[in-house]
Structure formats: structure tokens, C-alpha cells
Simulated assay, not measured.
Amino acid sequence: METFESLVQAEFTPKNTYLNTASNGLLPARTVTALHEAVRLRAEGRSMDPLFDDVETTRAAFARLAGVPVGRVAAGVSVAAHTGVIAASLPAGAEVLTAEDDFTSVLNPFHVRGDLKVRAVPLERIAEAVRPGTALVAVSAAQSADGRIVDLPALRDAAREHGARTYIDFSQAAGWLPMDASAYDFTTATCYKWLLGPHGAAFLVVPEDFGGLTPVLGGWVAGENPWDSCYGPVTELAHSARRFDLTPALFSYAGLRRSLELIEELGVDAVRAHDLALADRFRAGLSQLGHEPVPAPGSAIVSVPGLGHRAPELARADIQVSNRAGNLRASFHLYNTPTDVDRLLDVLSD
């Protein structure tokens, strides 16, 4: 019987101490193989139908991870594009509540509208800041800069109390933090971080009634019968969330199919336990060195104020982390080990 450790060891062969999943996840071996096969299929002039099948298989896998029916899941290429569709649906003057310094893809499409009231508050106050007249709350489940996790149940309850819709970006959480997309109006996630996929794939979860969204970016793939929708206006939009699909980056989905397969085999709960044990080991080691990370309990992302300038030094030592606003950000995932944590602490102690 394969164990968590044996599955991981069979898939990953990092050549350094890689602690930067919050920027890019490593590709599993099975994903690399699938990418090569997809490229070869096109290079040899064979039918691309298997790659379109990969999109649907991947959509179904994400739906299982998100805990929603597959008919609620749209496939796209980026969080910013999904945010743009939601921003386009709001009436002029609508209030959008956001968290200060959240990731740009969650925020900017609301700002560039120019006729929305976008209000930003500290993350820890976002639930209490929902008020009558708030149309939408848009926030990342886990903050990219420092890993802080929003109090999602409190936010959901506050939004319901005031009749506001919710838009949650799980890009820094999906894969290690359990998702329940059914609890929110809209959710999204890009898949090249904790879900271990190639760049160019992202998902949007919408309500069964589509939540008032218009498929303003929809092309031929948004049709109920895409191959009959290649010319002229789409006469019949897909009856499911597929009406919000963007033309898929087929190679990306061919690889992502295998990445999500691995996540399901391992189980999100097991991945979470593994990741958080490493993050907590790093926090404990930092305390012994006299450093205090940004408080982010229960997060796989650890951000340390004042140490961001050491990222180039760490890179020279073959340790990959990030410098975010002067903070050193380390992010731990299933291919990391206690040895990786200890090596990072050893270099920081010098």
C-alpha cells in the first residue's frame, strides 16, 4: 500500500530547498509526463479531442475539491478574468468591500470600473465592516503576502445578515485548506500554486442561478454545443456554468488533470496536516532565533517582517523563498520535509 511519503517521493525531485509554493507549486512527475504527451499529440497532427476531454475531467475534479456540483464550475485562465466578469455584473455605485493590500487580481477589476464604491478595511475587520448597502465582499481566503486566513464563517454570516454577496479567492488555500464553495456566492482559484498545475488554468464557482452574471468574456466554448457555436453569435449559451468558460489553455489542463489526481489521492486533510506541521516547526524555530512572524495561525504560509532582504542570500544557498514588502515569505507544501525547515533556520541563524 502506498503511503503519503511514497506517493510524494515518486512525484517530486527538487534540486534545491524549495519553500516558495505561494509563488509557484512544483510540477509532479505525472504532470510533466502529461504535458509532454499533449505537446507530442499536437506536434504529430493527431486529434486534439483528448485534450478537450481533459478539461472536463479536470473541471469535475475541482468540483469535488470545492464541494459543489460540476455544473457550478467554469473553467478559465486567471483569477483576474473571473473577477472581471463579476465586476461587470455590478450596477453603478455598488459598494464592494475588500481587504487592505489583498492580491491585485481580486481587487483591480472593481477599481477600473470607475463607478463602483470600493472600500478597503484591515482583514481582521472585514466581517464587522459589512453593512447595509454592501453589494459584494471580495477577499482571498488566505492572504498572498503573509498567509493570514480570513474568518470565513464570520464573513459568510455577516454577508447573509446584510444581503451582500461573497466572492472568495482560494488561490493560496485550495490544495491544503479544505474548501466549501457552496457556502459562498462566488469562489475562484488559480491552479499553479498549491494545486500543483501549470500556469494558465483557473476556476470560477457560481450559484446554480448564475448569480446575475453575464458571460461578457464568453466565446464559442460558452455555447451549449461549442462546435456548433464557432461562427456568428452564440445562439444558445451553455445551461451550466460552462457559459462562463474561456477558451482553455489545453496543455495546461492536460497537466492539471494529473495534478488534481494526485491531490485527491493524498487527500486535502493529509496535505494540510503535513504542511501545517512544517509551518509550525518554522515558527517555533524563528522564536528561538528572536524573530516574530506575522500572526497567521493555521496557515501554511509564514511571513517574517524585516528579513525579506535575505532572500537573495538564501537563493545563493539554494533555498527558494520570496521577498514580499520587506518580509521573508516561506510557504510549505507536501514535497517539503523537516530537513528543509531546519536548513532554512540554519542559514537565517548566521
Score class of each variant (00 low, 15 high):
E56K: 10
D269M: 13
R257T: 08
K193M: 07
L116F: 06
G267S: 06
A80T: 15
A202T: 03
L256E: 01
Q143D: 14
C191A: 13
L107Y: 12
P109A: 09
V137N: 01
F282E: 01
T247P: 02
V68A: 09
A311P: 05
A135P: 02
A141E: 05
E224W: 05
A81T: 11
E265A: 15
A222R: 00
F282Y: 07
A120E: 10
K15V: 15
R125H: 13
A34R: 00
V112G: 13
T17I: 14
T339Y: 15
I86A: 00
L65V: 07
W176R: 01
A10I: 10
P178F: 04
A145V: 11
H309L: 15
H333Y: 10
T190D: 09
L26Q: 00
T21M: 08
Y335C: 02
G114Y: 00
L136R: 02
E264C: 08
L204E: 09
F62S: 01
E128H: 10
S105T: 14
T214Y: 04
M1F: 13
R257E: 09
R243W: 05
S240P: 03
Y18M: 03
S105C: 15
L35N: 05
G147I: 09
P153S: 03
Q172G: 11
A158L: 00
P178L: 03
P207R: 06
A34K: 01
P305G: 10
H111G: 15
D275Q: 06
V79S: 06
A145M: 10
A270H: 03
V96K: 00
E292Y: 12
Y18R: 02
G255E: 00
V85T: 06
H82W: 12
H162G: 03
A189D: 03
P338M: 14
L116W: 03
L276C: 01
W227I: 15
V304I: 05
